[in-house]
Design a protein around this nucleic acid. Structure first.
Lengths: 131, 131
DNA sequence: TCAATATTTCAATATCTATTGATATGTTAA
DNA sequence: TTAACATATCAATAGATATTGAAATATTGA
C-alpha cells in the first residue's frame, strides 16, 4: 500500500453509498454479493449509480469482482483493507506504547475466534475472566 | 464512531496534504507538533493552506489542538483513529475467521510492546478494552 | 504600546465529483 | 434467434472542494 493507493482508498470510502457497500461486503465475507443485491440493499439505487460506485471501489482496490452467470459478484478486498489500516498507523506513537493499542483491540474482536488461540497482549489490556 | 463521523474522517484522509499531516502526527505521538512545524514538513505550504487542512482534520475529529504560547500544537486523535478502524471492519467476514487477521497483525506490530504477558486463552474470553 | 511572530478567516476561482436518464453490452432461457 | 435480465458506459448538469493572496486575530518581547 503506497500513498497514492491509500488516497484513492480513502476517497472511495468518503462517499456514503460506497462506505455502506464496503461495510456490507466486509460483513458478507469472501462469498460477496451480486451488484443487483448490493443495489437493492442501498435504497434501490439506480444501476448506473451502483455501477459508478462499484467500479470506483474496484479501481481503488477495495473490492474485487467476478462474473457468475448474468451477475457480477463483488467482494471485499481484505488484504487492501488491512494494508490501508497498516499504512495509516505505521510507526505510530514512538515511545508511547499504550496510545494505539485500542486500535489493535478494536480489530482483534473483529474475527470470529479460532479456539485456543495464543495471543500476546499487554496485561493492562486484558480484562479476561478466569474461566 | 457513527457513519457521519466516519465519512468525514475518510473525506479528510483522502487529500494528500491531510493524509501526510495525519501520518506525521501519528508518528509524533501525543506530544504533537506546532502548525508551523507541520507546515514546514509539508513542502512549506502556505499558512492559509495549512490552516484550512488542519481545521478540516480537527472538524473531522482526527486531530486535536492546544495553544502553547504563540503556537498551536496539533496531535493525532488516537481514539478516533481506532474508532475508524473498528467502524470499517466491524462484524467482518462472518464464518471465515482467517480473512481479516492480517489487519490485526498489521496493527499489532504498530506499538512497541511493553513487557507483555504471554497468555493462552480461549479467544471468547478476550474482550480487550481501551485503557 | 509597538513591532514581530503564529495562525486563522475571507472571497474568488479553478477543479473535481456524484447523479440522472438514455443507451449499449453481455448472458441466459424459451 | 428473440426476449429478458443484469450490468456498464456516456454526456450533461449540479454541487462540493482546494488553492491563492490579502487581511484579520491573537500572543509575546522590546
Amino acid at each position: 500500500m503506497d500513498e497514492v493507493q491509500a488516497l484513492n482508498a480513502f476517497a472511495s470510502l468518503s462517499q456514503e453509498t460506497r462506505l455502506r457497500i464496503v461495510r456490507r461486503l466486509v460483513i458478507a465475507g469472501p462469498d460477496g454479493l451480486s451488484a443487483g443485491a448490493i443495489g437493492k440493499a442501498m435504497d434501490d439505487a439506480s444501476s448506473s449509480r451502483m455501477s459508478f460506485h462499484l467500479s470506483h471501489l474496484e479501481h481503488a482496490g477495495l473490492v474485487k469482482s467476478r462474473r457468475e452467470g448474468r451477475s457480477i459478484i463483488y467482494s471485499a478486498a481484505f488484504p487492501a483493507l488491512s494494508g490501508l489500516v497498516e499504512f495509516l498507523m505505521r510507526d505510530c506513537c514512538q515511545g508511547h506504547p499504550d496510545v494505539c493499542n485500542p486500535a489493535v483491540a478494536a480489530l482483534s474482536s473483529c474475527c470470529k475466534p479460532a479456539q485456543g488461540a495464543v495471543r500476546v497482549l499487554r496485561q493492562s489490556n486484558l480484562r479476561a475472566s478466569a474461566t
